[in-house]
Design a protein around this nucleic acid. Structure first.
Length: 762
DNA sequence: CTCAAATGTCATGAT
DNA sequence: GAATCATGACATTTG
């Protein structure tokens, strides 16, 4: 248990950081009655820390202990810390999964707060770009909305541990001491960490360019997790945000901290602050309106250009707008917990361990939750399209949509341009399901396609896709839901593990989703031996083929070799008839050899020897009929001997026949297995092609939609007023021209077409 | 000793 | 019709 004093000290530091985060530029010195050196320097220093939080700082406090800021070992500690930071910066991609989870929780909370449920009819009134909250991949970075929210969260998350009451003189003295310690080092943290931050910035820039969304995820996680820490402006030392409800953390609440903040700095009176009518932080947090929409402020592109000077006012407005519109329906504590749930004690507890591989159950669950929301959010494939046109000219589009409409559903008629691109069966469910709302003609299509994809997924999972491959397939769908259709990688694979994602990708794309042994292996066996299959069967086959006397019987020099294991009569008799001189002197050895050979002899050989058959069983069995008869005619044999010889020949031939038969049977089985593999490979290939087709279809849908909206939005009636998408719809005429017809008429036509299609099917 | 796989044997039908 | 082969069924051996 750390001392309360330490908490308080940290709280002060966090408090100052909070001030810097929200852009306070108040002359604190006056407030502090000139007890302290200008705190603004501290703030500004912290502000630089705010510009770009550094991932490795997250781990700085994950070492399992926190050095007290007043420790005499601080100097050594900071030096070691700096070096350690550099080392750790090397593995910045080994992001603890908790960070990803943190982002996910954040996303969920957003979803719950915003009420933006994944559905085909995502309300447009939420504002363009809102839907990206349901698509946690590449969309996030591109829209910048998530980023904005993340920063807002960050702002909130950087709130210092709340403190009861105003600053006392002791507090001020503490600040003074800390400040002097910082001054003693003589340099700001930027100097130490500049290279790190530069790397970080580069990575972030790359991410903001919409490259790897998976990295985007991580980076987001980093951001969030990072910003859950308060960073010493000079040392880079991170302090965990003191979150209420977390054990061993400060008990001061966010609300209290905010109150303190307000009490300390009356925002409304500061010229650098937003308008005076802006609600206070506490008011905003305690504002109890139901789950509502995330405001534009929340969605405003706060995508950080870390090097740029902050638009503090803008950020403040964003923060305020969030608080205004977000409408936390719980009390401040609960709100804070909801906001911080991912970045609070869980992360701290999880990540303070130095072992990143330590399994954290909560991480897994959170991750799963995010995935599910991701995969279940197929409609977001469609909804995300909203962003593409709206990114540039969203206003015009949004004008088309009444406030209470169901978004795009209102902008398309029943029979529409989509029919040009898509087979009628896909369009069959387009309308009639929701006639009053003038459904989105493409929505049905998409639903169909989504169902198709889902069924595809099920099929894939059922029939040989392993879960990873299936998830990858899922990712392909999901990744398409974003704006950048081709450059995205789902965070799912990346968040799981680098190795798995890479391996699965190769296995899926190159070998197909076949759950068998690697094809190359089988092919190799096939090529070499002509027998397909996995190792055990192959060994069987080898054994049989090598034993097969038929393959050796006409090779005299191999005769003995070929029959040593099965038909030892010939060598045995030869040995008996022509005893080798070398073995004469050693009777024991010879006896052993004889016993051994006796054991090696088959029953027929034993019988033949007992009946004193004058020629080897091998000859009896393998000689052609004519030669065999000749051989028999040379000897005067009893009836019993002749019968035995015939039986031996019969059994011997049948034995070989049985061996051949079994070999053939095995070959047949293996060939069938290979055929199955081939078919499965073909199937997976077709599945991949299908996915590709679906992707291209989706792209075309998006294009059609945007074109439709563009055209429709430009149409004006006689009075120069735009046509209402509720009443009119664009439709292709039979001659190929595009006409504007009343929606009711289009609905009728759509029904007729459906009937026709149903009749055709019947 | 038990068991499963491998192998051998027989009966039967086909060639 | 004999010889041979193929194969299912059963027996025996093997590991």
């Amino acid at each position: 248990m750390l001392s309360l004093k330490k908490y308080f000290t940290e709280g002060l530091i966090q408090f100052t950081i909070l001030l810097s985060l929200i852009g306070v530029r108040v002359d604190v010195d006056t407030y502090l009655n000139s007890h302290l050196p200008p705190l603004r320097e501290i703030f500004l220093g912290q502000s630089s820390a705010y510009t770009q939080t550094q991932f490795h700082n997250l781990r700085n406090t994950l070492d399992g202990y926190v050095i007290h800021p007043k420790s005499v070992d601080l100097d050594y500690y900071f030096t070691a810390r700096r070096l350690l930071n550099q080392v750790r910066a090397l593995d910045r991609f080994q992001v603890p999964t908790t960070e990803v989870s943190a982002w996910l929780v954040h996303r969920d909370s957003e979803g719950s707060v915003s009420g933006a449920q994944p559905s085909t009819g995502i309300a447009l009134e939420n504002g363009g770009g809102l839907q990206d909250g349901t698509v946690p991949d590449n969309v996030v970075r591109e829209s910048g909305a998530e980023q904005g929210f993340g920063e807002d969260l960050e702002d909130l998350g950087a709130v210092a541990p709340p403190m009861n009451g105003d600053l006392t003189k002791e507090d001020i003295d503490l600040i003074d001491i800390l400040w002097k310690q910082d001054i003693d080092l003589g340099a700001g943290r930027e100097i130490f960490d500049y290279s790190h931050r530069q790397k970080e910035n580069e990575v972030d820039k790359e991410l903001s360019n919409g490259e790897e969304c998976g990295d985007g995820w991580r980076s987001r996680g980093d951001d969030i997790a990072d910003r859950a820490l308060l960073v010493d402006g000079e040392t880079g030392e991170s302090f965990p945000v003191q979150v209420p409800g977390v054990e061993d953390q400060t008990a001061l609440s966010l609300e209290e901290c905010l109150r303190l903040l307000e009490a300390t700095f009356p925002f409304g009176e500061n010229s650098e602050f937003p308008a005076a009518d802006a609600p206070s932080l506490t008011e905003a947090l305690s504002n109890e309106s139901g789950p509502s929409v995330v405001s534009e402020g929340l969605l405003s592109p706060l995508l950080t250009e870390p090097e740029l000077p902050f638009d503090l006012e803008q950020q403040w407005q964003d923060l305020m707008s969030i608080m205004e519109t977000q409408g936390m329906e719980v009390n401040n504590m609960a709100t804070a917990e909801a906001l911080y749930s991912s970045t609070s004690g869980d992360i701290l507890a999880a990540n303070y361990s130095l072992a990143p591989s330590t399994p954290i159950n909560q991480n897994v669950s959170l991750h799963q939750a995010s995935l599910s929301s991701c995969t279940q959010d197929f409609p977001s494939l469609f909804s995300s399209e909203i962003e593409s046109p709206s990114a540039s000219g969203s206003s015009a589009l949004l004008q088309l949509v009444p406030d209470n409409s169901t978004g795009f559903n209102t902008t398309f008629g029943s029979t529409n341009l989509s029919g040009i691109f898509f087979p009628p069966q896909l369009n069959s469910t387009t309308n009639e399901t929701s006639p009053p709302e003038l459904p989105d003609p493409l929505g049905g299509l998409l639903d169909e396609a989504m169902l198709d994809e889902i069924s595809l997924m099920d099929l894939a999972i059922e029939e040989g896709f392993n879960s990873v491959q299936a998830s990858r397939l899922e990712e392909e769908f999901d990744s398409d839901s974003g704006l950048s259709l081709d450059s995205s990688h789902s965070p799912a694979s990346l968040s799981s593990s680098e190795a798995s994602s890479s391996s699965t990708s190769s296995s899926f794309s190159e070998e197909g989703a076949v759950g068998y042994n690697s094809d190359s292996e089988n092919v190799d066996f096939e090529d070499v031996e002509g027998a397909v299959g996995y190792q055990p069967e192959y060994s069987k086959f080898c054994r049989m083929s090598y034993q097969n006397p038929t393959q050796l019987q006409y090779l005299p020099y191999l005769e003995h070799v070929g029959h040593n294991h099965t038909y030892n009569m010939a060598p045995r008799t030869l040995d008996a008839d022509e005893p080798q001189p070398a073995s004469l002197g050693k009777k024991s050895a010879k006896d052993k050899q004889t016993e051994y050979l006796d054991k090696q002899m088959s029953r027929d050989e034993h019988r033949a020897r007992a009946m004193k058959i004058p020629f080897p069983n091998e000859k009896i069995i393998n000689l052609p009929v004519e030669e065999f008869n000749e051989l028999l005619s040379k000897y005067q044999l009893s009836e019993a001997q002749l019968s035995l010889i015939r039986d031996i020949r019969r059994r011997g031939k049948n034995k070989m026949a049985a061996q051949n038969c079994r070999k053939r049977k095995l070959d047949t089985i293996l060939n069938l297995e290979r055929d199955v593999e081939d078919l499965q490979r073909d199937k997976s290939k077709l599945l991949r092609e299908k996915v590709e087709f679906l992707r291209s279809i989706r792209q075309m849908k998006q294009k059609v939609q945007s074109l439709y909206q563009e055209v429709f939005g430009r149409l004006r009636d006689e009075n120069g007023q735009p046509y209402s998408p509720n009443q009119y719809v664009l439709q292709y005429a039979s001659d190929g021209s595009v006409i504007l017809i009343p929606r009711s008429l289009a609905d009728q036509q759509g029904r007729r077409q459906e009937r026709k299609q149903k009749d055709r099917r019947k």
